[in-house]
């Protein structure tokens, strides 16, 4: 069976933007079986903006799974926003997994916000001041939780949903100096160790859609400005047909 995954990140909905994105979701059930949201759903992470997100993505004819992004953390209300979304039937991952039955196949989605640190050979390490250690440690803890969630995942198809990028391929177009703030190879390392069919992320608005991990897992940057379309649709199936 085919499994069509619609995905978008960085819709950055403000309180003045209610309904504007929703208009693009009409008929999504004809194009995809599930919609994944790769974080930065709001501009400032306020509860008012969280409400706009809920109204924009609730009661769609297909399941919706989301992670939050750095903007959604800006007002220190990520847990409250996630709770509002869950209340409306939107799954929100926080370094854990969800398994859905889609057309008789089990789709497992693992993920969370992710974090930065940079890419192999050009990255921060847990050394020196506590502030640097805390930064690197945050990413390490996240990568460890993803590794565990993937190890324990029982599903036919495995997708990782993140806000930050696990690879630098999909950052092409961004200034290289800010790569450490856009993602971390530790995320890719954890995913490569346990295996997945596809990785989706956002955050890098000026990046590139397509990339691949060192072990060959496809990575797609679905930030709205990168896609230039309301969402990307990725079809996973063994026989090359959809």
């Amino acid at each position: 069976m085919s499994l069509r995954i619609a995905a978008v990140g960085d819709v950055h909905l403000g309180t003045d933007m209610g309904g504007r994105y929703r208009s693009h979701l009409t008929g999504i059930e004809e194009k995809a079986d599930v919609l994944l949201l790769a974080g930065d759903l709001t501009r400032h992470g306020t509860l008012e903006e969280g409400e706009v997100v809920v109204e924009e993505f609730r009661d769609l004819p297909i399941p919706v799974i989301a992670v939050l992004g750095n903007h959604d953390h800006h007002s220190d209300k990520p847990a409250e926003i996630a709770a509002m979304m869950r209340e409306a039937g939107i799954a929100v991952l926080h370094d854990d997994a969800v398994v859905l039955d889609v057309n008789g196949e089990r789709l497992g989605v693992v993920g969370g916000k992710g974090f930065g640190g940079g890419f192999a050979g050009k990255c921060a390490s847990e050394f020196g001041e506590p502030e640097i250690k805390a930064f690197v440690n945050h990413t390490k803890r996240i990568a460890d939780r993803w590794r565990t969630a993937l190890k324990e995942l029982e599903a036919d198809r495995r997708v990782v949903l993140s806000h930050y990028s696990p690879v630098n391929d999909t950052l092409a177009g961004e200034p290289p100096e800010i790569y450490p703030f856009l993602g971390s190879y530790l995320l890719a390392e954890a995913i490569d160790a346990e295996g997945a069919d596809l990785i989706l992320h956002g955050h890098a608005h000026m990046g590139t859609e397509k990339g691949v991990t060192p072990a060959g897992i496809r990575v797609r940057n679905v930030a709205l400005p990168v896609l230039g379309r309301a969402y990307g649709v990725y079809c996973l199936n063994g026989d090359g047909r959809c």
Binding site: R4, K31, R218, R220, L224, P225, R229, C235
Partner: peptide
Amino acid sequence: VVDVRTPEEEEKL
């Protein structure tokens, strides 16, 4: 200003 198009194509992986 990003012009959001309605998606037409899908990518087969």
